Amino acid sequence: MRTSGGGFAGLVASVATVCLLLPTASRAQLKVGFYNTTCPNAEALVRQVVTAAFANNSSVAPGLIRLHFHDCFVRGCDASVLLSVNPDCGNTERQSSANNPSLRGFDVIDAAKTAVERSCPRTVSCADILAFVARDSVNLTGKLFYQVPTGRWGGCVSNETEANNNLLGPDSTVEVLINGFRKKNLSVEDMLVLSGSHTIGSSHCASFLATNRRQRANETISAAYQALLEALCPPNSGQFDPNTTEIDVSTPVVLDNNYYKLLSLNLSLHFSDDQLIRNATLAPFANAFAANEMLWKDKFVAAMIKMGNIKVKTGIMDEI
């Protein structure tokens, strides 16, 4: 999860205090096919950009899914994570320790927005593009396709403190995870299901090394796995140490249920992941997902759609 991201300079870096107002069309609620009339090729254009980026580097997919998640969990799904300047001064969400240098995929959003703007100027919001690229990444890595309800507006506020206070770290306990999701109107099951996205992607040493040493002391992580991680990471890995490793050691580029299988084998990279199998209430559900991939995938799609509805802005007074 601790991987660096690119820039969004072409769209927001220069004048972050001036947001692009979209046309005052009816935006009462999200719906599938919102752009069917105003920009019928929007989803196809975004998909082309994501597919090309994925063909060049498959690691972009987990980065884009995580970008959508980290946007929605702060101020709602409003694309505020893309802003590189805070109009109220101070650092932005993307500059927070929870996101920097781990967030990546900003360059793909930039390319997708450019393609859509060329075809349909001032029509498709960046918040909806974030939902599209996440969906397309799920499709490319897990062969899962689902319809994305759209019609989100974006926000002009992006605050470092809000990101650090709302984003859940890799050292979170079960209680912290449950409460953090509950605050976003997501259930315990949603939390457990969405955690499965860790079956793809990589993480920086600083995100797991210290807590894994505590897990080793409690014998809740494989000794051989911990030795491998110790060999990979510098002894005192800091926030900006570039060393990373795959979260799923077996199928790191495939969105499958292998994440849940690794939990019971003491092969969880993050403390927060390992916690799911240590909880008597959650463990049976994690084991069920390990045994039935389609069960998890069906629930994962539903949870992604639900997450994409967190505090969406849909009124004409909102902005992108």
Rank of each mutant, 00 (worst) to 15 (best):
V188D: 05
A163I: 05
V301R: 03
Q239E: 09
L168P: 03
A231L: 08
I277L: 04
L228G: 13
N165S: 14
F271G: 01
P252Y: 07
S197P: 02
Y260D: 06
N212K: 08
T244D: 03
M191R: 00
D248H: 09
A223F: 14
L265Q: 15
V174W: 14
Q215G: 10
A280E: 05
L232Y: 07
D171R: 08
K299Y: 05
A291Y: 07
A280P: 06
N165M: 11
S250M: 13
L192M: 06
S197E: 09
I200Y: 01
N257L: 10
E246W: 15
A291P: 06
A210L: 11
Y225A: 09
A210G: 04
A290G: 08
L269H: 05
N166E: 11
W296G: 03
V174G: 00
P234R: 06
V176N: 07
S250K: 14
H198P: 00
Q226C: 06
P170I: 04
N292Y: 02
N266E: 05
D256M: 05
L295Q: 07
N212R: 12
S197C: 07
I200N: 02
A223E: 15
S222I: 11
D190Y: 02
A227R: 12
L276K: 07
V176F: 09
Q215Y: 13
L209M: 14
P242H: 03
N164H: 12
G238I: 15
S264N: 11
A224T: 15
A290Y: 12
A286M: 08
K261P: 10
V301P: 00
F208M: 01
G169I: 12
A286F: 04
E175L: 06
P242D: 07
P252D: 08
R278Y: 09
V176K: 13
A283K: 04
L228V: 14
K306V: 12
R216G: 04
G169F: 10
A280I: 01
V254P: 07
A224N: 13
I247F: 01
S268G: 11
V249Y: 12
R216F: 06
S172G: 10
F300T: 03
V174L: 03
Q226P: 02
G180N: 02
A163K: 05
P242Y: 11
H198N: 12
A303R: 00
A302L: 10
S202R: 11
F285V: 15
L167F: 03
L255D: 07
L262S: 02
N266R: 08
L232S: 10
F289I: 14
D298A: 06
V254H: 08
H204M: 04
R213F: 09
N165W: 10
A210S: 13
L255S: 01
S268I: 13
N164I: 12
P252C: 02
N266Q: 11
R278L: 05
V254K: 04
K261H: 13
L177D: 13
L263A: 07
L167H: 09
E230I: 14
R216Y: 08
H270P: 02
E230F: 04
Y259D: 03
E293S: 13
N287R: 14
T244K: 05
Y225I: 11
T199S: 03
S202P: 03
L232R: 15
G196L: 00
G196A: 02
H198D: 12
R214Q: 15
D274Q: 14
L262K: 00
W296K: 00
R216H: 07
T281E: 08
A280K: 04
Y260R: 06
F208R: 00
D273W: 01
L276E: 04
S202Y: 13
A280N: 05
S195Q: 14
G238H: 03
E246T: 15
